[in-house]
Amino acid sequence: MNFKLRVWENPWRLMLAVNAAVLVGVFLHKIALPPYVPYIHLLVDYHFGFTKRALIGAIISLFTVKIPVWLVFALGGAVWLITAGLFVQLFRRTFGFDKRHLALFVFMTGSPFFLKNFMHTLGHFDIYGCLFAICLLLIPARSLAYVLLAAMFSIVLVLIHHIHLLMYVPTIAAIVVLRHYLVHGTSRPNVAVGITSLGAVGALFLAAQFYGTIPVPEREFVAYLHSRMADPSQTKLLSFSYIWYQPLSKEIWDTWQRLPHNLLGAPVFALLIWLHTPLWRYFRNLIAALSIDAHRYIVTATIIIVSLGYLIMFAMVFDYSRWVSNWAVCMFLILHAVKMLPASKDVPPISADDRKTMAFGWIVALIPRVGIVRPF
């Protein structure tokens, strides 16, 4: 009874409860949908040689030959739970769970850009980039081993899907710069390791993009995927096999053909970003409070570089709702990295008593997700 009373007395706690209920609804809706793209990614491995988007399927093939459809939700759900749990740990370590930071916690965990949209895209590869970035924010960044670990994470992400080079690798690089290079300085060895790592990740991306195509006819490829299905009657789940044969030029052409229609969602994306104004204002204040001028310039530069990567993705692939959502998640993660830098003063947290902020918090908590291509 006392717990219920405390919840009603603190609307931010109630927002978290409502957000949890919305998450359950998103999950129930998701498992009722056919997992076209996520399922076929579990079937593809390195049977025909080096292949793009095949790492997860190759790892699964080490344990089982036949892939059931439910594995999409089991694997995706497990990764989602790990990511959510590690983010809660990250927030606790960076800010703490006191009353002062509860509103900030709601704007992040309750954001339709973040955990709720990862639930809607359950089985897609986006969340792996977020998971690795959170790990890099949690572990110590004292030595070159940190830079090498970040490089290894980036390589794994590119093998999962080469679009991670634009989606989460820039954010991982930003975290390494902010947590390692700004704290420990630049020396010839650590700069050399960083440049070499970037070169290796870039070379792998080019190999995946241009040499990771399937060398056999599509009919033979589909027949192999069909042989790996636990339920061969679900042939409709193989309808996206063409993406392993589609050249980059065709993807760009499709994106620009759909651009006029997909851009109709831009005002909705802008509105959703605007609803997070209290969070962006707090982020701006954190940057302004940094005690070293060079740190402020470098943080600003990393935000611009990460954002440019997403603009390039907008021109190449039309999953706009996913790109906007992951961009926002990258900003959340960079915010944590900025908080770890030395500051000249304490930045007041998001006001929990401001009525406008509270209204934004309720709307953010109630919106179930952003989507994959178009808003909602």
Rank of each mutant, 00 (worst) to 15 (best):
G194H: 11
F210L: 11
L290H: 06
M340Y: 05
L55Q: 04
L137Q: 01
V370R: 05
L90P: 05
V7Q: 07
I195W: 07
Q209L: 14
V65P: 00
T277P: 03
P247G: 06
L43W: 02
R296L: 10
F113G: 12
L290A: 05
W362F: 15
K339D: 14
S321A: 15
V22A: 12
T277R: 13
T235P: 00
Q234F: 05
I363L: 13
H120T: 06
F153M: 11
F97I: 08
A20E: 13
T94W: 08
Y224S: 00
G265C: 08
I304L: 14
L182D: 11
P11G: 11
V329Y: 02
L144G: 15
I139V: 09
Y168C: 02
L23Y: 12
T302C: 15
V7A: 12
G57V: 06
E9G: 14
H226A: 11
P68M: 13
K30W: 06
A141K: 06
L275Q: 02
R369I: 03
R142Q: 08
V364K: 10
N190V: 08
A294G: 14
A200K: 09
I334T: 04
I312Y: 09
V299Q: 03
R355V: 13
W12S: 08
H47V: 03
C330Y: 00
P260R: 09
V106D: 10
L81N: 03
V44Y: 01
T186W: 12
L271T: 04
F125S: 09
G194N: 12
E220M: 00
